[in-house]
Design a binder for these strands. Structure first.
Length: 600
RNA sequence: GACCCCGUAGCUCAACCGGAUAGAGCAUCCGCCUUCUAAGCGGACGGUUGCAGGUUCGAGUCCUGCCGGGGUCGCCA
């Protein structure tokens, strides 16, 4: 099950070797000049440089050795030494049939599976998700799926922010807002004797009635602002934090309620976006590791005192820039966020021992991760090179600055999805689909279209660059958009349904028309696109492949009638091609976390 | 101030260890539905790849300087 490109690459490698040239130059790429060739190799030019020989002579020699290859219909040399290859119809047909018979549509698995942990989204207690979480969620989910599909053992961890000073702040804010909570905190210093599961449930139920996510979301920003201005208030919050960390019973109960309420709401929101985590390990889970870890760092002589704080120096003599140390314990004696990150690395080593950990986090945290990773390597908490920050740019508004609502606030993710869904519903209605679909199917289709619009718009861009958010453009059904891709998939499904009704069955694929050739060449390129996406942690390469596939299908669809094809063999062949395209397109979209509806 | 990223068509973005004529989508204009979903397809228009040097047979890609935008620079996460 090898793609044509690698098969040709091997042939060209062999030819280079026969000619006494280094086969590493024999890289075959998709042709830049589709009018001249399907594939090309520029290796003769590089060899010419090293050999101080003529590129076209070398190319001619190589070309001669390739002529007998059954995959090759034509090989010629152009310009200073480009080797142009055209693939034979039989090779294309053979490849298409192999793909049709492969449930992975040509995607190979990696040879040596690894254990990979993907850290993404990073939701926090008491905070509703906003647009800032969108990219991390979408990109992280896609990376996770791509890695898992490639054959790695993958865990996606939400890395729940459920610990620290913010928790104390929330406890104080809730106590001030509700006397019943204040007295609960006051009374329950430790677990009362005879305290049963039923008692606990009663308290939980009471808390549920008093505090919902909306309340937390409202209380937290106010409390944070107050703490900045009010020293006494800050001190109270600090004390509450310490009491929570010391295990005071009432504090633990209410904190656990915060986490539960938040998590339930978040899981629902994530799920609506097609984002699901394997793990919800919280910062609280690694808190017990911090004290022994600090002691160990001290023992290993990595921890030193500086300006009253405990730090680990991670700068190296060959650094081109100044790398600040990792601040492990502040001068006030508290753990910093880098400390938690380091403890999390240690935790992960213990329970999973990953070969690779990918942090799908905002690009702006690059320096922070560099420092934490260096400290982790020094401490032996991760395999060398196993930690990697997969950074991404910001989602900007029309003004080029990070996205804000018209009022200048942060847009909640749920509101964003609602907006997108309303827009999709409107578009569907304009097309008169409201009458054909049942209300349930209409709603689910609108949601699918909305999610596809948002996700595809994000994933089509390379993650590292920032992009401009424009809902109108994203939800358009024309052009490089999620809805366009869904539309093509839906057309394929409709065609297959109709074929089944007419008792037309898919058969052996034969490649004749130019549109069929182009489509098969693209189907062949799936494996390479996935490989590149995997290596570069770049889902946009999968998105781009999906778009080109959909587009190529649309051309095929316009140029090559399927059910009205002249003979039975052609009908069967084209139907097979359509079925294969749908399979690969759905696989690709699935990796991006986009599901296709049956009709739209 | 130091360091990092970015600057490509009117707009949003691509461009596979340096390769041929820098590609898509949108917008604009012109064609194509009695035929499988026209939410489609075909075509046209559109570029001194921020500026100036350098390396190379060849540079959007590598090097140097400059201009412009964004970001980061130990006790918040």
């Amino acid at each position: 099950m090898t793609d044509l490109r690698s098969r040709l690459g091997e042939a060209v490698s062999a030819a280079f070797e026969e000619a006494g040239l280094d086969p590493k130059w024999a890289r075959v790429t998709v042709s830049d000049r589709p009018d001249l060739a399907d594939f090309q190799c520029n290796g003769a030019l590089i060899a010419a440089k090293a050999r101080k020989a003529s590129g076209s002579d070398i190319a001619a020699d190589i070309a001669e050795r390739l002529r007998a290859n059954p995959c090759v219909a034509a090989v010629d040399v152009a310009g200073p030494g480009f080797i142009n290859l055209r693939v034979s119809e039989s090779a294309l047909g053979g490849r298409a049939n192999a793909l049709a018979g492969d449930e992975r549509a040509g995607a190979r698995k990696i040879v040596q599976p690894r254990k990979v942990l993907i850290d993404y989204a990073g939701p926090n207690v008491a905070k509703e998700m906003h647009v800032g979480h969108l990219r991390a969620s979408i990109i992280g989910e896609a990376v996770k799926r791509i890695y898992r599909f490639a054959g790695d053992e993958v865990l996606g961890d939400a890395h729940f922010g459920d610990w620290g000073f913010q928790m104390g702040l929330l406890i104080v804010a809730c106590a001030d807002a509700d006397p019943a909570i204040a007295s609960l905190l006051e009374d329950l210093v430790a677990e009362p004797p005879g305290f049963t599961a039923a008692d606990e449930q009663a308290i939980d139920a009471d808390l549920s009635a008093r505090i919902a996510l909306d309340d937390l979301d409202r209380l937290y920003p106010a409390a944070a602002a107050k703490a900045k201005a009010d020293d006494d208030y800050r001190e109270r919050a600090r004390r509450a934090t310490a009491e929570l960390q010391a295990g005071r019973f009432g504090h633990r109960l209410i904190w656990r309620h915060f986490a539960q309420v938040t998590r339930a709401a978040l899981e629902r929101d994530f799920h609506a976006l097609g984002v699901d985590f394997d793990l919800w390990r919280g910062e609280s889970d690694v808190d017990p590791l911090i004290e022994p870890m600090v002691a160990e760092l001290r023992e290993k002589k990595l921890l030193i005192e500086d300006q009253g704080a405990q730090i680990v120096r991670v700068a190296r003599s060959d650094d081109r820039r100044e790398i600040p140390p990792l601040l492990v314990v502040s001068s006030e004696g508290s753990a910093m966020y880098g400390t938690t990150d380091l403890a999390t690395i240690l935790d992960r080593q213990r329970f999973f021992n990953p070969d690779l950990v990918l942090y799908v986090v905002d690009q702006r945290q690059a320096d922070h991760f560099e420092i934490v990773f260096r400290a982790a390597y020094l401490a032996g908490y991760a395999k060398p090179g196993a930690l990697e920050h997969v950074g991404f740019g910001t989602m900007n508004g029309a003004d080029g600055k990070p996205f804000k609502t018209r009022e200048g606030g942060v847009l909640k993710l749920r509101d964003l999805i609602d907006m997108a869904r309303e827009k999709a519903a409107m578009r569907l209605q304009e097309a008169g689909l409201g009458v054909e679909l049942s209300p349930e199917e209409f709603e689910s289709t609108a949601l699918a279209v909305a999610v596809a619009a948002l996700k595809f718009a994000d994933l089509i861009n390379f993650r590292g660059t920032s992009y401009v958010f424009d809902l109108d453009r994203f939800s358009s059904f024309e052009g490089k958009t999620g809805p366009y891709l869904l539309y093509q998939a839906v057309r394929m499904k409709s065609l297959l349904r109709k074929a089944a009704a007419e008792r037309v069955t898919a058969g052996r694929i034969a490649v004749r028309e130019p549109a069929e050739r182009d489509l098969v060449l693209l189907l062949d390129a799936f494996d390479h696109a996935l490989g590149e996406a995997y290596d570069k942690r770049a889902p946009n390469l999968v998105a781009d492949h999906a778009f080109r596939l959909a587009q190529s299908f649309a051309r095929f669809y316009a140029a090559c009638p399927v059910l009205a094809a002249p003979d039975e063999a052609t009908r069967a062949s084209r139907l097979g091609l359509a079925a294969l395209t749908l399979k690969q397109l759905e696989l690709a979209l699935g990796l991006l976390g986009i599901t296709t509806p049956e009709r739209m």
